[in-house]
Amino acid sequence: MAAILEVDDLRLHYLTRLGKRVQAVDGVSFQLQPGEILGIAGESGCGKTTLVSGLMGLLMPPLHLTSGAVRIAGRDILRLPPAEVRRSVLGRDIAMIPQGALNSLNPTRKVRDLATDVILAHDEGADRRAIQDRLRERFTRIGLEADAVLNAYPVQLPAGMKQRVVIGISTLLNPRIVIADEPSSALDVSSQKAVIQLLFNLLDEGIVSSMVFITHELPLLRHVAGRIAVMYAGQIVEIGTTEQVIFDGRQPYTRALMGSMLSAEPGQKSRKPVAIEGAPPNLGEPISGCRFAVRCPVAQSDCAQREQVLREVAGRHVRCHHAR
């Protein structure tokens, strides 16, 4: 089956005002198959959010493309003019559900008007009445109470509902790929569950085809993703199926990340989370050898010198030459 999204050795860097170069994404490759949810996990500062900008084809200074490609159905969106990206890629090929979506809705307009604008922006001649029917049909189909929600102002909605409305609006044009960047991290557990349920509805109803789900909560991906990529310092350090990564991580960072998670549940009190000491490396400086070596609990003397490459270990890919 042909991949719907293909990221090929993508490298992105920031140029600071002082002329310093920060390599935030450093050689990321993966493919997204139709119907798949790929999870991307990592600490803040690991390059997740920069990667999202690349996937959206939106590179604005100070962020620049170093090399590599992002292909959607064979078309390299990073080499399209920005106007073309806005016109034909965003919303149709790929849509993003942002982190701070809670405040991204204009508070002075009803949800109905905000949603109508999205459709009119891409189809100026659309019939207003037909749009209203379409909105009601769509909101009902994804499990929202269409009439109540459409007639509300954003401020009247609780945080969790606001986030679901943002998701409903951003997928109105049936994008093939949805990039969800921490869509539920700011919500309470109950709203979080409702948001995930909504994302599943979008896939089950065939409204969107595939999804990239980015989060710092690795355990959440257990229920969401089919495959997981773990990022550290701008690189993928392990990529494999959810079972492999969550229950049997082979890269020391993956294991440390899982170990640091407080997936506290009643009856599981015994396991004590262990924080990862130290902080991710400064990507403005050149790093030799394994980027995790200084924090790695099982580092050996050769780790700091040896350049690490992704290689296959036990059916998944791992960036650690000690992994077995």
Binding site: V189, S190, Q192, K193, L203, S263, P266, G267
Partner: peptide, 28 residues
């Protein structure tokens, strides 16, 4: 509270935790 919840709201809160060990949100 967690093993013998008496309130439906407690039960709701318990159900909503994304556990690693049991099903949470299911797909059709």
């Amino acid at each position: 509270v967690t093993q013998r919840p008496t309130s439906p709201f407690t039960r709701q809160l318990l159900d909503d935790i994304p556990s690693v060990h049991r099903p949470w949100v299911t797909r059709a």
